[in-house]
Amino acid sequence: MTAQQLEQALDKMAREIVAAAPPNGELAIVGIRRRGESPARRLLPRIAAAGRRVANYGVLDITLYRDDLSTIGPNAVTRGTEIEFDVTDTWLVLVDDVLYTGRSVRAALDALVDLGRPRAIKLAVLVDRGWRELPIQPDFVSLSVKTTAENIVKVKVSEIDGVDGVDLL
């Protein structure tokens, strides 16, 4: 996926979110640290352009909720959750770059319900690469690809990698 295709994918995702969101009630966009942050932030102006105000934006750190904490050891780096609004009763879209086993999303759901009780939690991902280990499915997907366990799906964003794009290695 090129940088331009990534832009178009985000445009399309924003339109789909606006179409699906209930007309009244608070919309919230939450990116999963660290690679969900950038797509989540880039969705904001697009959702606004599609005619919906997003008052609530935040970033969720799931490190402390991971189910593999005891095996990742010192690689567990916490960067903190930054959700300044009350999630209770919001229609909340969780954003991540790649959906794979579903374990990050499981951790994110646990972290979110510790913050409050959203009216609904939806999942938006740029790439669904399959191989789920938990019963979790996305609501908004830009790209679904068949992969093998050896493949690496790399979503690059200019904030971290200097360039935009999606590579399948």
Partner: peptide
């Protein structure tokens, strides 16, 4: 820096993480 990210835990309704 790690402590910085733990400050937020004390401000929530459920003041606990499962780490």
């Amino acid at each position: 820096d790690t402590a910085e990210s733990f400050k937020e835990v004390s401000t929530r309704s459920v003041k606990k993480v499962p780490a």
